[in-house]
Design a protein around this nucleic acid. Structure first.
Lengths: 71, 71
DNA sequence: ACATTATGTCAACTATACACGACATCACGG
DNA sequence: CCGTGATGTCGTGTATAGTTGACATAATGT
């Protein structure tokens, strides 16, 4: 169960000139705690937020978030 | 403002041998009402469900769901 | 005329994404 | 030694995704 969504946000933040969680949060319009929770995969973002995060990194969505289907 | 996610589910259902809403719902593990609401864009699916729907059509996620960013 | 299938609506509920404030830790620079 | 920035936790509250059951309607078939 857990969550079936993984992500590469932390990696992409460091590749993107070491963008901080706070900076990313501001860019995509959520709070710092939300970015922390998503990075830690405590929960998956909404589809809309996933799109905004992917766009913040100028990457296709499936490059940032992966779905592992062992349902 | 409404929702910023649009989708091509209805079109893809008919292209996929006229798959019914009920059949799609079963394939992705949600109820029929959920598919109706998403098709009608009354709300956006979760990221996880979006991945499952895209996979049901064997399409990349961004082929099924679009984000329009006039926030 | 009746049954069935596909689509849609409504209301009440549960689960979860996200906000907000407070507080803790660690690294770094002055 | 102290301040600040970056990361993380906890608790509580709100918004929204998704469920369930009931009911409506149009289209098709027998």
């Amino acid at each position: 169960m857990d969550t079936f969504i993984t992500n590469r946000i932390r990696k992409l933040r460091f590749e993107a000139n070491e963008m901080t969680q706070h900076a990313l949060a501001e860019r995509v319009g959520v709070t710092r705690q939300t970015i922390i929770a998503i990075e830690a995969a405590r929960y998956a973002p909404s589809l809309e937020l996933a799109f905004r995060i992917a766009r913040a990194f100028a990457k296709p969505l499936e490059d940032v978030f992966q779905y592992r289907a062992d349902a």
